[in-house]
């Protein structure tokens, strides 16, 4: 559905901006009212060890003595200026701490995505091309079992096997490239089984397609068709899935960063919940909402670029 008086691209952009605005407003509002429902927000904001004087200070600073609608408006106003308050742990601006933690998370996410794609694409394409092979059935069974592994369990088992038993790589830290291996594999284990299944489904569907019959008729070998014609199409599905799984990827980051003491937003979030550092929790939630939404947008755009057939349609729901 397009607003007729706007050019399509601009209308698209406006709609996206409105969606992101709604998501942000929704999450902020939920956190705001929960904080007030949960008891004395000053006590939550100031932390469990606050003195009565500190509580008074917080009440004044956050305007907690004002009526609720006034508080809400004021709170939105502060957030609009990117004022998330200061961390209770060290009085640094919450948003600064959060932004400082993002690069480590992005790095881990990047390495994990690379690992995921390197494993799942070839495997998925091969599985799709060999639906009846004995080995393929075995691999499919293995993937079914792997899908039953919660990510944090996989991460713990990886540490146990490769760091403790075999002593091949360090168990935690962020220093040298050797410490990057296990966390990347652990985050990848969240995404890979799903991606393999999706690529496989895409490939077997494509093999039924008309262009495959044309290629067969023109004398191309099955192998050439699979890897030369069908595989590039499967890439499209991969892009879509990775975009749609960005939210899930963040879950992986939270857990894996905690296990490996990786200094990203996931570790910061868990640390902040232990000492109820509310300004930081809130800043993380908001930046994550924005980031995940942008990744979805980007994957949509890439998909449109790769497949002009989608470009004419409205956005997929």
């Amino acid at each position: 559905m397009r607003t007729s008086w706007l050019p399509p691209r601009l209308a698209q952009l406006t709609r996206r901006a409105r969606e992101l605005g709604l998501l942000l407003l929704g999450s902020i509002t939920v956190l705001f009212f929960l904080l007030r429902l949960a008891g004395d927000p000053a006590a939550v904001i100031a932390g469990p060890d606050a003195t009565p004087e500190q509580l008074e200070l917080v009440r004044a600073e956050y305007g907690l003595d004002q009526p609720l609608p006034v508080q809400y408006a004021r709170y939105l106003g502060q957030l609009a200026q990117l004022d998330f308050g200061t961390s209770l742990a060290d009085d640094a601006p919450a948003i600064d701490k959060v932004l400082a933690a993002w690069p480590a998370s992005l790095m881990l996410a990047g390495m994990a995505l690379l690992t995921t794609v390197l494993v799942s694409l070839p495997l998925g394409i091969w599985l799709g091309g060999h639906p009846r092979a004995r080995l393929a059935r075995l691999v499919r069974g293995g993937i079914f079992v792997l899908q039953g592994f919660p990510g944090f369990v996989t991460a713990l088992l990886l540490v146990q096997l490769f760091a403790i038993q075999l002593e091949l790589v360090p168990a935690l830290g962020f220093g040298t490239p050797a410490t990057w291996i296990l966390p990347s594999i652990a985050v990848a284990s969240f995404l890979a089984p799903k991606l393999v299944r999706l690529v496989e489904a895409n490939v077997s569907a494509s093999l039924e397609g008309a262009y495959v019959r044309t290629a067969q008729a023109s004398g191309l070998s099955d192998r050439a068709i699979l890897w030369g014609q069908v595989a590039p199409n499967a890439l499209l599905g991969a892009v879509a899935l990775i975009g749609a799984q960005a939210a899930f990827l963040v879950t992986g980051l939270v857990i894996v960063e905690t296990i490996f003491a990786w200094p990203g937003i996931g570790l910061l979030l868990v640390q902040s919940t232990t000492n109820l550092d509310f300004p930081v929790i809130q800043a993380i939630t908001i930046t994550v909402v924005v980031a995940v939404y942008l990744v979805n947008l980007l994957s949509d755009a890439v998909q449109r670029l790769l497949d002009p057939r989608i470009a004419g349609q409205g956005s997929p729901a």
Partner: peptide
């Protein structure tokens, strides 16, 4: 309809962590 279509691109786990941190 709006929430349903947006929910997939929403980090629910992070929201859940934040909510439980607040509500106890």
């Amino acid at each position: 309809r709006q929430i349903t279509s947006l929910a997939q691109s929403f980090p629910v786990f992070v929201l859940a962590v934040s909510i439980i941190a607040i509500t106890g």
